[in-house]
């Protein structure tokens, strides 16, 4: 009897330990967000959004960095989306099980694990120097596009995989070709899933700092980019720059900019989760 009681106590103890661990991360995140809000919320006003960067902390704004982030995000989407979805379609729908498919699969899984700063080195050498794009929005977008490509491919494949085989059977049996089946049936049916993956990948891209620093994106840019070949900064680099400045005013700026960045990231994640839930219901 005694032994059984001891086991039950241990069981209960672990349960509370498990709850504590589960909440630990979230509590820390909450403390942290609270801290940031205290530091930065007062600093956010319209001027902060539309002002150009300045040497004086209280007159600085995030306008150029925000515009840079938007430019990079749009171009990254334009580059990564078609390539990533096309590659996923090939791997999931066209590729027979053979040597090439194994190589592609291992390779993509490896790429997903390459540290982002390494993509920066690749971008620096290939886009900035060899292709002579300089440290431009375009070079940064290509670099981030390669970085999120594995994520887009993997999530698109998952979404395609979730479309029941019976849909393919029905379409082929109606005399549809492979591409007609993909285009008319599979892509519309997996749209929600693909969208979820793409938004998550982009929310990753919008927070990336290191690879853009490596390709030479600047912390201080006097104007927002007006073309893809312009120099640029992005929100995370602006934040990094402010963090590393000793004057207290910049800490407030950093906190305020973090609030904006977190807002963008969380909203993107929220939208992604919304689409995922909505889409998952479709086949159940």
């Amino acid at each position: 009897m005694n032994n059984i009681r001891k086991n039950r106590i241990k069981d209960q103890a672990f349960k509370y330990w498990g709850i504590a661990c589960t909440l630990l991360g979230l509590v820390l995140l909450a403390i942290f967000i609270g801290n940031i809000l205290i530091d930065g919320i007062m600093r956010i006003d319209w001027d902060f959004i539309v002002n150009l960067p300045s040497r004086k902390a209280e007159r600085s704004g995030i306008y150029t960095a925000l515009m840079g982030s938007i430019w990079v995000l749009l171009l990254t989407t334009l580059i990564a989306l078609p390539v990533g979805i096309a590659a996923a379609i090939y791997l999931e729908e066209y590729n027979k099980k053979n040597k090439l498919s194994t190589i592609l699969e291992v390779n993509i899984s490896n790429l997903a694990g390459v540290p982002s700063v390494i993509y920066g080195l690749l971008g620096l050498e290939v886009f900035v120097r060899i292709m002579e794009m300089g440290s431009s929005v375009l070079a940064g977008s290509f670099t981030l596009a390669l970085l999120i490509l594995p994520i887009v491919i993997v999530s698109t494949r998952e979404a395609l995989k979730a479309v029941p085989k019976s849909v393919r059977d029905a379409s082929f049996a109606m005399g549809a070709s492979k591409w007609q089946t993909v285009y008319h049936q599979l892509l519309p049916a997996s749209f929600g899933g693909i969208l979820t993956g793409v938004i998550l990948a982009l929310s990753r891209a919008v927070g990336e700092t290191a690879p853009l620093i490596v390709i030479g994106a600047l912390a201080y840019v006097p104007f927002a980019p007006s073309s893809a070949m312009d120099e640029f900064s992005v929100l995370p680099i602006q934040i990094f720059n402010w963090i590393t400045r000793p004057q207290h005013g910049f800490v407030e700026n950093a906190a305020a900019a973090i609030i904006i960045l977190l807002l963008i990231t969380f909203v993107m994640n929220g939208i992604a989760v919304y689409f995922r839930n909505k889409w998952q219901k479709k086949f159940k």
């Binding site: 927070g207 700092t209 934040i239």
Partner: peptide, 15 residues
Amino acid sequence: LELLAAVPTVVYGFF
């Protein structure tokens, strides 16, 4: 919990 991995790393650096 997955939100923890979604927070940009520069933000964690600040933290």
